[in-house]
Design a protein around this nucleic acid. Structure first.
Lengths: 139, 139
DNA sequence: AATCAATTAGTTAGGCTTTACCTACATATA
DNA sequence: TATATGTAGGTAAAGCCTAACTAATTGATT
């Protein structure tokens, strides 16, 4: 029992390490070493909406509009988002993620995808089926 | 191939989600919602040394000594570390992690351990052996 | 239909608090 | 005297705010 758990721990520690190396690599590739957790959180909200106006973003993040203006200006400098003027209403801007912005907020998913690619590469089709069958049971 | 990868992705996404729920739970349990990544980084350095003096910590983190004093005072308030006066030299203090401090910087390991416990609980011994055998191959 | 006031979206200016640093100087112990 | 740590006071950046501004739209009124 304990021996098994020990083994499992070491095996999964290795897998988690591989994944976190992938995500560090992806994030480093964006060239924004000083990005903060808060900023990533806001990028994720923008990603969730696909496109969002300043007012709506102020509303959903419970911030004032000037705070959002400032934040978005910084994001534009960082090349994470861009502004798109609305055709219906000239006062309105839609905030969209750039490629880089998407990479940052989907970093963990991309890293996980790389990990599964590595598995696909190292394992046979049968082994993968067995793996899926067993791990499906874990709740 | 692609189908397999898709399956693997979903299965592991679930496992990673379970683990990250565990680590959030552990961290929330510490009652320090405003702790920063920098602070956690410094706690990990203290953990690595086991016990460390102010001067040494200033040296290894490339900070000035007053910066360390200030940081440690905050950590003491947060109940993450305590000071222990050296018996050999009354000028020297050793900085040690409290239980809470250890919990914070070993949070990811504890979460991984909880995940493997869940696996142990959900799977048979044979399944675990198969799992270990297969996953050992992933590089 | 033309116009002008009110409303709305976003910006600018200026200010506050906290984090995370610093230097210069003070205190206690060796 | 030299060394370990502490105190005082200061800086820059992050992340927030309010008040006042500009530009576009809406809608009531002539």
């Amino acid at each position: 029992m304990t021996g098994n758990n020990e083994h499992l721990f070491l095996i999964f520690e290795n897998l988690f390490k591989i994944k976190s190396e992938c995500s560090s690599e992806i994030l480093c590739g964006c060239g924004l070493p000083d990005i903060t957790l808060k900023q990533i959180g806001y990028l994720k909200i923008i990603d969730r909406y696909g496109e969002i106006t300043f007012s709506k973003l102020a509303e959903v993040t419970s911030n004032s509009k000037p705070t959002i203006s400032e934040m978005i200006n910084k994001f534009i400098q960082m090349e994470c988002v861009y502004k798109k003027r609305s055709l219906q209403d000239g006062r309105v801007f839609h905030i969209c993620l750039t490629e880089k912005g998407q990479t940052i907020c989907r970093c963990e998913q991309k890293a996980l995808f790389r990990l599964t690619e590595k598995m696909n590469y190292s394992l046979t089709e049968d082994e993968i089926k067995t793996l899926v069958r067993i791990l499906k049971k874990v709740k």
